[in-house]
Computed example of a mutant assay.
Amino acid sequence: MPPNPRQLVDRVAVGNYQDEVTHPSAIKAFVAEFISTLIFVFAGQGSGMAYDKLTFGGPASPSGLVAAALSHGLGLFVAVAIAANISGGHVNPAVTFGLFIGGNITLLRGIFYIIAQLLGAVVACFLLSFSTGGLTTSGFALTEGVSVWNAFVFEIVMTFGLVYTVYATAVDPKKGDIGTIAPLAIGFIVGANILAGGAFTGASMNPAVAFGPAIVSWTWSCHWIYWAGPFIGAGLAGAIYELVFITRTGHEPLP
């Protein structure tokens, strides 16, 4: 039977305010998202600031790109793992949006997840700025020769890969034992995407990661790319995986 988009629409829900926002378990989930995003952004953004300090603000280099991929990949692995049993370990507004599109989180809870993630990123960048004696938390920017639309497509494709990985390893009911390595797989895809796109767009894939440094440094050049690209990529991944690969009929499909 071909995918039925109506099934996807039927799964999307607004949610009850009392259950999705004010319930103690919901509040714990928001706090978990705040803390895990703070840890992730502090590690990722901090590694970039440390690299700039060690190289005295020198130009980007292959070693710097590898260091960024490693710090973000390992940081996200930990951030997802520590929040997985409380909030699901989204650590990313785009992931939350992708899960909402697939009907795996309500609109109300998703909005508060995103608020918590953005706050975590902003606090992390303020803490970095303070603890480094006022060093700049550099915002994301396009490299020379990369157009806005080049970067836009890059962010869509990279975030598609990230959210598709989240669905395959953490959301799919058929994931089995692979679900235990979901945080590692998610960290790996982010690290790999940074190696692929870091030299072109900075490889955000995460509006919170771009928003925190932009607030602290007040740098908003082409900032919309780091929201629109990830949200489109996440929405496509969520819709495609949910419609094509997940069967929610209450039984396993016949072989």
Rank of each mutant, 00 (worst) to 15 (best):
V163M: 04
A43Q: 07
Y226N: 11
G44M: 01
P3Q: 04
H23R: 12
H72Q: 09
A68L: 05
V12R: 15
F30T: 11
A79C: 06
G48K: 13
A69D: 10
G202A: 02
F97H: 00
A192S: 14
S25I: 15
L70R: 00
V91P: 07
V14R: 15
G229K: 05
I194V: 05
V171W: 06
T22F: 14
V66H: 09
L76Y: 07
R109F: 02
F154N: 03
F42H: 06
V80W: 04
L162N: 03
S204I: 11
L135P: 09
V14W: 12
S87K: 01
F100T: 00
A60P: 10
G15V: 03
F30P: 13
V171E: 01
T169G: 10
E155A: 03
A60R: 14
H90E: 02
P173I: 00
D19T: 07
G103S: 07
G89C: 01
V153R: 15
F231E: 05
I232D: 07
I240T: 15
P5K: 02
G73D: 08
R109E: 07
V12A: 15
T249D: 15
V157N: 07
S87C: 05
V153G: 08
T169Q: 10
W149G: 08
L142K: 06
V95H: 02
A151T: 13
L54V: 08
I225K: 10
A116P: 01
G229H: 06
G250K: 09
L128H: 00
F77M: 15
G145P: 00
L70H: 01
I189P: 04
F245C: 08
I114K: 05
V163A: 01
S71P: 13
A29T: 01
M205L: 08
V148W: 11
F126Q: 09
L70T: 01
L74E: 14
A141Y: 14
L127R: 10
A192E: 12
V31R: 08
A84T: 09
S63A: 11
A214Y: 02
G58D: 07
E242H: 07
Y17V: 15
G202R: 02
T143K: 10
T219G: 11
P93F: 12
S147H: 05
F154H: 09
G179C: 04
I215A: 00
I101S: 03
T22A: 15
I39E: 15
A239L: 01
W149C: 11
G235Q: 08
Y164N: 14
S36P: 01
F42L: 11
A43L: 14
A196P: 03
I232Q: 11
F154M: 14
S61Q: 11
I114Y: 08
G191F: 04
E33H: 06
W224M: 10
V216F: 05
F211A: 06
G179Y: 00
S61A: 12
T159Y: 01
F200E: 15
I215K: 05
G198F: 00
R109V: 03
V41P: 02
F34P: 08
K174R: 15
